[in-house]
């Protein structure tokens, strides 16, 4: 089912790529720290012709060009954010695998938090409704610690 995975069907428009892997030895920068930055940036950028891969994973020629570009910008002294801005200026927000936080993505970024909070609220209301009131109710004597321990043990064995 994970079918034609990463075969880059969309690359039909681009020339049929010769089989290759992502980062090639000749792309790697000499400075390991800078190379590590390049790798991290590459993971944030979408390979446009393969749709759901980052340029770091992709073997499409355009992905390679973009990887080289990222490294050129880093060597030229750009910061990580500047490199991302440079690519975004040409390809739009679409290339960013981490969508920027702005009006059109508020729902995306805040959605999970909203779901969690609403769910927690719902669960809290539900749990309040489920709370047994008889045990601590009027007229009932609170359990002594020994009794409670015994009860807990019994309940535990019951489960």
């Amino acid at each position: 089912m994970t079918g034609v995975v990463r075969a880059c069907l969309a690359a039909l428009l681009i020339a049929v790529a010769s089989p290759a892997f992502a980062v090639q030895p000749d792309e790697v920068l000499r400075d390991p720290a800078m190379e590590a930055r390049a790798r991290e940036i590459s993971k944030e950028l979408r390979c446009l012709v393969c749709q759901n891969q980052s340029i770091d994973d992709s073997n499409a020629p355009l992905a390679r060009d973009l990887r080289v570009l990222v490294r050129q910008r880093l060597v030229a002294g750009d910061g990580d954010g500047e490199v991302l801005d440079y690519v975004t200026a040409r390809y739009g927000d679409y290339v960013l695998l981490r969508p920027p936080f702005k009006a059109s993505t508020y729902v995306l970024w805040l959605g999970p938090i909203a779901v969690l909070l609403l769910g927690a609220l719902g669960a809290a209301l539900f749990l309040r409704g489920r709370r047994p009131t008889v045990v601590g109710g009027e007229g009932a004597t609170p359990l002594t610690p020994e009794e409670r321990q015994r009860l807990d043990r019994l309940l535990r064995e019951d489960s």
Partner: peptide, 15 residues
């Protein structure tokens, strides 16, 4: 030849 200018144009496929 190296596709660099095309990147500036935001080209991601031909044509």
């Amino acid at each position: 030849q190296d596709g660099r200018v095309s990147i500036d144009w935001g080209v991601y496929g031909v044509p």
